[in-house]
Amino acid sequence: MQASAKVTVAKHDFLEGLGRCMKETTVIAPVKMKDGEVTFEPVRTAKQITFDYVNDHDPLKRFFMPAREELFSFQNARGKALLKSPPLPKPRVLFGIRSCDLQGLAHLDHFFQGAFEDQLYLQRRKSTLIISLACNEPLDTCFCICCNGGPFLESGFDLQLTDLGESFLVDIGSRAGRKFLDDWKVPCQTAKRKDEQLRQALMHKCDEKMIPTAYLAKACIQITNNRVREEVWDEMGAECFSCGGCTHVCPCCSCFDVFDCTEGETGQGTRYRCWDSCQYSGFTREASGHNPRAKAKERVKRRFYHKLSYAYIQQDGHPGCVGCGRCITVCEAFQQLDVPAVVKRLRRDG
């Protein structure tokens, strides 16, 4: 991919342009909730947008693969059923997504293509313009530098903004991105070398603050070669609450289950998928009652095999982790079973 073009835009100019866009297209952006936390949701004016956030605790994959979504609806009739796929998604803009979540989407893009294309996901991706915001200030749980998940990216966005104080440094990543700037009359200046230097300095500072915890290589080798002692998995399995939180908040996790819902006796209904978790024992139980991963230990092992084995890294082109650190916060087995913690445990073992 060719290096993206760079421009600078005064912040208020950019937001004005975005505001114009909102009149015609749905814009999803970060807003403050009552409790001070940030969430992403459709906004009506640029004023609603907050910049006072590091990230949403709930990963943004939900806008592309909602926690529950319709696969199709059906109407049972005499001798046949009428089936209907859900409507195509409308164009929209996602503003303010962080690099780690975007890298997570890249991971899911790769997965949902493949031999069978999951158009429910892919169409949502196609119809969404991505304006990402690089991170100047990480949380104390962030480690994206260890997983190629940030703080800023080389590709994957339509536009990538870096906050330089008064203005944004804008990387234009696609034709759609450039079109956005033109369509909404966002006044751009060519980026100067000092702007790029300033960004480098900011990113460098950001790097410094990150937990230098996830030196993945040793853990990857141990897991790939099945060299982790069983006792280590035993202990982790006993600790695990099997809450499934780590998989729900992971930008790279996408497992789902499928169920039908009917409306009374009308013969009408919907087939849904909903997020599932490999950390639940019901995930693999078979018709015979046999369950290949009946123990939490086997499920924890599975999760890390999927995240960190070379077999998967080769298949997906990337580890199943982008360093967003959400699994650290979400874990009931406090700071024992998140990616950095396990990587550390495996590094020490053997």
């Binding site: 997965f111 996408s254 789902f256 998928r273 599932d276 490999c278 290949p292 599975r302 095999y305 077999a311």
Partner: peptide, 18 residues
């Protein structure tokens, strides 16, 4: 045989290793 849902490599239920 594994517990299967989607049959098309997306739901993750049937995975053994990669």
């Amino acid at each position: 045989e594994r517990y299967m849902k989607c049959g098309v490599g997306k739901c993750g239920h049937c995975a053994i290793g990669h």
